[in-house]
Amino acid sequence: MLRVEGLVKRYGSVEAVKGVTFTVQPGSIYGFVGPNGAGKTTTMKIIATLLRPSDGRVFIGDVDVLQNPGAARARLGYMPDFFGVYDNLKVNEYMQFYADCYGVPVAGRDRLIGSLLELVNLADKREAYVDGLSRGMKQRLCLARCLVHDPDLLILDEPASGLDPRARVEMREILQELRRRGKTILVSSHILAELAEMCTHIGIIHEGRMVASGPVEQIQREAGTRVIEVRLAGGRAADASDAAGAHAQAGASKPAGAHPQAGASEPAGAMSAEALAVIRSAPGVRSVTVEDGGLRVSLEGEDEAAAALLAHLVRAGLPVVHFAELKSKLEDVFMAITGGGER
């Protein structure tokens, strides 16, 4: 659906995008991940026909975006990271205006706008003034605007930025629904947790370079990080958290509530410094963190490495009551791939 080949964008002597190449398959949600200033917005603006690259090509289906921007615009819906609305315009008029701009036939347009507003939960706001809507509502309205000409590809630049948690969940659900309807979605964020649960593919951009791109599982595998959750019976140590923190290299700021079941049975800071030292000395262990009362061990290697770790712990006499692999989070992967830059 979307093919980006060797994209380069220079602003004077500064190279903002350095040979970015990736492909987005039809019907997928592609998470475009990277810290602020990595080149996400520039890349997305080029794809959306709003910026000419210094080099490289972009195809939407078989349409060359740079050669035929008009045809490309008919196939894409773009939502920028920052956007405004017009004063003194009602939601319905706003949608009608963009439908006019896209040349959507007048026949059946009212029904179309009604269904789009319903999709983004704004059906009851049809006669409200756009500038009076909340930030979350404006974001959803902008999404509905992107869909007014029924594009195949949606380019959403930080669609959840500045939204409260509830609005983020709503936005995520809408994107899932759009995927079910066959849309291909390229969505960016610098907050990985936002993308973790909804993307089928991710691309990680760092300092203008694409450092990884592909299905989420593949990226996780390629990052070589597997995380094992270990729980020990008994052991208490007052300063264990500090000890763990000193060793931590990755996963230091996980989102709250990631493992609520663990926190309920065993309080944080329940591991002894000796136990942590034993685990760290095991072969293949990259880092150990204490989280929600359990230990999260970042491990290099395949299943054999995990088996060897378990044997090492048992041999050392640690009372292991739980030993299971966690699906590693995008944050861990991102940190592993980009070498611990900004998150």
Partner: peptide
């Protein structure tokens, strides 16, 4: 441009 609506206009099919 100040209202950040120009890009939204330029990605439509209007020339």
């Amino acid at each position: 441009r100040e209202r950040q609506t120009l890009d939204l206009l330029l990605v439509t099919r209007l020339s």
